[in-house]
Design a protein around this nucleic acid. Structure first.
Length: 728
DNA sequence: TCCTTTGGAATTTTT
DNA sequence: TTCCAAAGGA
């Protein structure tokens, strides 16, 4: 296989490793995906391992998909039966088959974060606990932490018997698990934990998979939590052919339960493990690596390694110290425009930030200067209210035991079923230990309600029953359309004729397209399958290689990606490193790893920016430069821009790269109507549709005053391009 | 039950 | 600043 010849010595060693445990410490950009895919190909081609004897685990669907494609390419097809998937999909696959053995129904639904929160909140109320002392979010996080470490409620209680607060949380945790089971639902942690439970309680099932998977490979091993670690350990016990690949310096999810000691202690755990270090970097220039190294070197708990490259050192890191976040944003965008003028594509650039909230200023500047961009993360499509509502309806159709979904939609749209009614239904359900939907169906239980409420409840139940009947013979799209109509949901959206209503409508349409697409791609498409897909897919999974746009995202989202030019913005104490981590040594180490991840995304040019003052939550604060910038030796940095020399606040305005309103008008008058007249409508990129109050100035100085009454904006001055005329 | 007002909190989020 | 959820009034 000629592809193997392109491997360096270390890579080759990892790829051709025979039997037994293998740890590959793969620095950023050192070709770890290549090693993984080649190793799989090697096993099949040279070692005669059958595809269905291989289990390869990744963290994201995107990574799984890419790995699948690459392996398929290397082998020229023939990977049928190979499991290349995320932890979660692999476990769901197992559980769909066997979970009935441990007291769930195989058609379980998957609860997301907000479902978890609403259950936690419910239980806190039910136990009459004070939400001020037990903030539901904190309690949920605490429960999550316990689950990540595989601590069951009874153990949790024993551990914290003497801690009053935690014993109360133990109670919540216990009820939380019971509630999930009653609802026939699993949360993300359960997907792993219940698989382990299944393996523990039903050894013959474990044995089956142990025998089946002769070779197990795990990517991003530094981000596994205790449960995932144990699952891998259990499965690999049969053949002990476990290959894990990861980089302790890129563990950035410790706060979510990732356990960095999994990778640090691998050799203790598997005494005969072979360790291969990949330190040659194929991605970045020497200077970029030097910068990344100079930051990460301050971490104590890490495996010694140092990235190097055969590439030249490249240009220095460029650091712009802006006046404020608007100046910072304009700087970034103007550099992008400049470099695009010199022949780069927009998709060569990524702008990274620590917090989603930072995207705002950057977006404004991009819009103002007419640069196409895409945001990854933030509010996910499937997290939008209207989409979650539809999904709740669908879930209820699949799994009538799902009280959380029922409560979400029983009064959306308004059906006159309020809190009082729901409380009664919930109480009865509790007494009879059955689901709330079941209660709605029972005549005698409706006795507990007034006639009016009983009638409304009955109507709702009947609608759902009809849909369940309809579901049997209809396609998915038909079902969704019927649902939207018969529940009155679409009518509700139609009656809301403002920008928000239109947006929602558009989202619903997009949702229907997604359903359609799912149906087309999957031959044996089922509602259950679709819902599962929805639960397990994220935004980053759909990031296409070349979108012709600049990409904006958090540093977390950028892990695993690379771009020719990267901007890391907001390099300030309190922001990056974040204030929440700054006092805690472990937290600071994680921030440092995050910074390392950010820097190593860049292939050719890395920019960092900081602002002297920044408006955070409405008030403006003066900032200090990030310690991470100070970690970088002077000879690697080139500082550009200086607040003493420039008056910065409105620097962008005199900049001829900004599209003037007059130019917009010129374009539109080509179709002969002057569009900017008082009373006319325009659409603003952020504020939506507004009415022109007045037009003043001419040529270069033209400006509009626009009112956006919906937003309470009486006059907004628009001088540059984030606006376009709207046909009346 | 529904609508408006008010107050408090506000990282990161592969699944 | 901006978002959300709880509380209070109609």
């Amino acid at each position: 296989m000629e592809l193997f010849q392109e491997l360096n010595e270390q890579q080759y060693k990892a790829v051709t490793h025979g039997e037994g445990p293998l740890l590959v410490l793969a620095g950023a950009g050192s070709g770890k995906t290549r090693v993984l895919t080649c190793r799989i190909a090697y096993l099949v081609e040279k070692k005669g391992v059958k595809p269905d004897e291989i289990l390869a685990i990744t963290f994201t669907n995107k990574a799984a998909r890419e790995m699948k494609e690459r392996v398929e390419h290397l082998l020229g097809g023939g990977i049928k039966g190979m499991w290349i998937s995320t932890f979660h999909s692999a476990c769901v696959r197992i559980l769909r088959r066997y979970i009935h053995e441990i007291g769930y129904n195989n058609n379980f639904v998957i609860y997301d974060e907000s479902d978890q929160l609403s259950i936690t909140k419910d239980i806190i109320k039910q136990l009459n606990m004070d939400e001020r002392y037990y903030p539901p979010k904190a309690v949920k996080a605490e429960i999550g932490r316990a689950k990540d470490s595989l601590i069951v409620p009874s153990d949790y209680y024993k551990m914290y018997r003497d801690d009053f607060r935690r014993s109360k949380i133990a109670e919540v945790y216990d009820l939380y698990q019971k509630r999930l089971q009653q609802n026939n639902a699993l949360d993300f942690d359960d997907i792993i934990n219940k698989t382990i439970e299944l393996f523990t309680l039903k050894p013959h099932i474990l044995e089956y998979y142990q025998k089946k998977f002769k070779y197990i490979l795990v990517d991003e091993y530094q981000d596994t939590n205790k449960a995932q670690y144990l699952m891998v350990k259990m499965l690999s016990k049969g053949h002990r052919n476990l290959c894990v690949v990861g980089d302790d310096d890129q563990c950035i999810y410790e706060w979510r339960g990732a356990n960095i000691s999994n990778i640090l202690d691998f050799e203790k755990d598997f005494k005969d493990a072979v360790v291969v270090k990949l330190e040659q970097n194929y991605r970045s220039t020497g200077n970029i690596l030097e910068c990344a190294n100079s930051v990460i070197i301050h971490n104590r708990g890490r495996k010694e390694k140092r990235l190097w490259t055969r590439q030249g050192s490249g240009s220095k890191l460029r650091w712009y110290q802006a006046y404020n976040e608007r100046d910072e944003a304009r700087f970034i965008v103007s550099i992008i425009k400049e470099m695009v003028g010199e022949g780069r594509k927009y998709s060569d650039f990524a702008v990274l930030y620590r917090m989603n909230a930072q995207s705002r200023a950057i977006e404004d500047a991009l819009v103002e200067m007419g640069v196409p961009y895409r945001i990854v993360g933030g509010l996910k499509f499937y997290d939008r209210k209207e989409i979650k509502d539809i999904i709740a309806y669908l879930r209820l159709l699949v799994n009538p035991q799902d009280d959380v979904s029922l409560k979400r939609i029983i009064n959306v749209p308004k059906r006159g079923i309020g809190k009082a009614t729901l409380d009664v239904v919930e109480k009865v359900a509790g007494d009879m230990s059955c689901s709330m939907f079941n209660v709605l169906l029972k005549e005698e239980c409706q006795g507990a309600l007034g006639t009016r409420a009983a009638g409304r409840v009955h109507d709702f139940a009947q609608t759902m029953l009809n849909l369940m009947a309809f579901k049997v013979s209809a396609s998915l799209v038909e079902l969704v359309e019927e649902l939207l109509d018969k529940t009155g949901y679409i009518q509700m959206l139609e009656s809301q004729r403002d920008k928000e209503g239109l947006d929602r409508m558009a989202n619903v349409q997009e949702f229907i397209s997604a359903v359609k697409e799912y149906e087309e791609i999957n031959e044996d498409s089922t509602l259950e399958g679709f819902l599962e897909n929805v639960s397990l897919v994220s935004d980053i999974d759909t990031l296409e290689e070349d979108y012709g746009s600049v990409v904006l995202m958090t540093v977390h989202s950028a892990k695993g990606l690379e771009f020719p030019v990267v901007f890391v913005s907001g390099m300030e104490e309190g922001l990056f490193p974040h204030a929440r981590s700054i006092d805690d040594p472990a937290g600071l180490e994680e921030e440092r790893r995050l910074c390392y991840v950010a820097f190593t995304r860049a292939r050719q040019q890395l920019y960092v920016t900081s602002a002297h003052q920044r408006t955070v939550y409405g008030n403006t604060v003066y900032t200090t430069v990030s310690q991470f910038i100070k970690d970088i030796p002077d000879h690697l940095i080139e500082q550009i821009g200086d607040r003493d020399k420039e008056h910065i606040e409105d620097r962008g305005k005199g900049d001829n790269r900004i599209i003037k309103l007059s130019e917009v008008r010129k374009k539109d008058t080509a179709q002969d109507k002057p569009k900017f007249n008082p009373g006319g409508k325009v659409e603003h990129a952020r504020f939506g549709i507004g009415t022109i109050v007045s037009v003043s100035g001419t040529g270069e100085d033209e400006e509009l005053k626009v009112a956006f009454p919906k937003l309470g904006i009486k006059q907004f001055i628009v001088k540059y391009a984030p606006i376009k005329p709207v046909e009346q």
